[in-house]
Design a protein around this nucleic acid. Sequence first.
DNA 1: TATTATACGGAGGGTGCCTCCGGTTAGCAA
DNA 2: TTGCTAACCGGAGGCACCCTCCGTATAATA
Lengths: 211, 211
Amino acid sequence: MATQKGSTELRPPEGGEAETVEGRPMRADARRNRELLVAAAKEVFSSQGAGASMEAIAKQAGVGVGTLYRHFPNRLDLVEAVYQTDVEELWESAQRVVAELEPWAAVEAFFVAFRRYAQTKQALMAELHQAFEKNPDMRSRARSLIESSFDLVIDRAKAAGAVRGDVTGSDLMQLVSPVCTNTSIEPDQAARLLRMVLDGMRADAARTAFA
Amino acid sequence: MATQKGSTELRPPEGGEAETVEGRPMRADARRNRELLVAAAKEVFSSQGAGASMEAIAKQAGVGVGTLYRHFPNRLDLVEAVYQTDVEELWESAQRVVAELEPWAAVEAFFVAFRRYAQTKQALMAELHQAFEKNPDMRSRARSLIESSFDLVIDRAKAAGAVRGDVTGSDLMQLVSPVCTNTSIEPDQAARLLRMVLDGMRADAARTAFA
DNA sequence: TATTATACGGAGGGTGCCTCCGGTTAGCAA
DNA sequence: TTGCTAACCGGAGGCACCCTCCGTATAATA
């Protein structure tokens, strides 16, 4: 259960970490700018909405649009990169809460992190939809990393006896994800539903049996 | 249960049927062009994708862009209008299958119609998302008309003893809609799931009891 | 048929995505 | 440290698209 892979595996082959295609390390300025750009995109998307212009993002990063397009050949590639880092951050959150908190507290903290992740995802939804179409691999890789994150937190809580034994990370993802993503669910309703799910997954909550 | 309203109620106050704002009837050419434009938009969106240009739509309708923008002040208004007619067509499908088919056959036929509706909705998803944000009323009105459509078909089948008594139109909508809309479900998987739902809602299928 | 309110059409303004190429700089070798 | 070169940077500008404006055409009415 939950064979978790290192976070690097999520990244697409070309979009590399610190290497250019031929295996040569990126120049320091290039690497710095790439990170600045992703951070700027995150910032601008969340403040101006998903429709923010590429120019605005380049400006926020303090570089020209040419530099932006060198790193991300088109808008979708940038959106993709932002989403990748969001998913990776979620995975890191899972690792952090597991390292720092008691099993049950970690579960609660991870739910909070997941909600934050889902919110930024929602903002990029329209564009992400296209990105997923163009690049179906990314979707499934992201999905499996998210599932691993849930597994990491849940399996530990199960082992500690804090969470009932018949629930899996995958179950939770399928249950929680729509609640956080569906726009027809109001934020306070979502919060209520999540509390309900949390209550229902405690080890001492299991009562209902059905086929 | 299922107090169904006439389809006209779905339309927004301003987007009127055949009347301009002051209650004056639309000129014949204006009315004709409006219909041509919606039909053209439907056609072009489905052949060229949701990103199709306004110019292409006007051309397909055989009018100038000025005329398009007279009827639909911006892109989102047009998308909205297309979606409205899709929902109305679904409602009309419900009425038609109820009028023409046996209770159970009507249920099956309506599922087919719903899948067709969901497909066109999926194509416009990205833009619709924005339209819903701008105009939340539309979403809930569309939702309730869809629910009424399910109710119309299901209530009749329940009365005829073809469908189990403990299922509602709303339940079905909530169950079927994600299956048809979620892009991570493959078409053949969706078809399998729908068959399963159909089997499960037959009157003689009720066996499992749980709290 | 004459009048008039209303609709039509398409040129053009503004904006946004993306390309191109001259200038600059990091990394390396001597 | 210095000089070389491959790689990077920046922003002007091309192109496509959304939308506006206004002169022309036409349906409705008397």
